[in-house]
Amino acid sequence: MEYAVLVDPAKCIGCRACQVACKRWNNRKGESTTFNSEWTNPPKLSFNTYTHIKFKLEYNQAADETKWRFFNWRCMHCKEPACMHACPVNAITKYEQGPVVVDTNRCIGCKFCISACPFGIPQFDTVTEKVDKCTMCYDRVAHTNEPKEPACVQSCPTDALLFGPRDTILQKAMERKEELNGYVYGDIDNKPLGGTSFIYVLDTEPSAFGLPVVGEQLPTSVPVLKYSKFLLIPAAIGGLLYLISWRKRRMKEKEE
């Protein structure tokens, strides 16, 4: 069965329990941080931070009001993952239950997936020289008859994250969309890369959250990267023809 997570930023209070739970379940190190221009620390995703709460301060000029927006950001777990198609060593797997997972034993750190992902998710680690990202807790969701919700979802105190069968989650997204008079990003209104396993329901346009416009099909750069190797075929034919004509010329010269 296919599962999904509904992300409802309007309910997020920015407590970052999900960030902590993710680190604990996935055994990721903490990061030494420095002051920076972001409202939160660490400032962004990294090899050791699979999930991150973005803090955005919004000013409404008409009402002369400021408003915080907090929202959970990590891999979207696309149906047609661009990263998976770009990987030359098949280190990335899309599970039928939803998760898209990097096998770090297989990863060679070439960064092709970084080139391919339109969401900027895969993160390179200078210690292991490999790439990693959120796994949608595939070790809780896949490989089992009784899937458990991902660690981030389990820790969320306000139900800003909800886990369930994808159909049920889509239904909930529709209901909440009505309530908020808003948008669904990941399916229904916006279906990046065939639809995603993390689905946002938003009270305003996706761009207000910095969510990119991503088409349903793979970005052109991915098939170009993947199939450019077929240029070797005309190159080989050209090379062969060149060798044949060179040999013929030599034979002729020898005869003379």
């Binding site: 770009a86 092709f112 970084i114 080139s115 990267l225 450019s228 240029l231 070797l232 190159a235």
Partner: peptide
């Protein structure tokens, strides 16, 4: 962008 350009340019160069 760099890794993808690097690879594609290699094949264009070979051809």
């Amino acid at each position: 962008y760099a890794p993808a350009i690097h690879v594609v340019i290699t094949y264009i160069w070979i051809a």
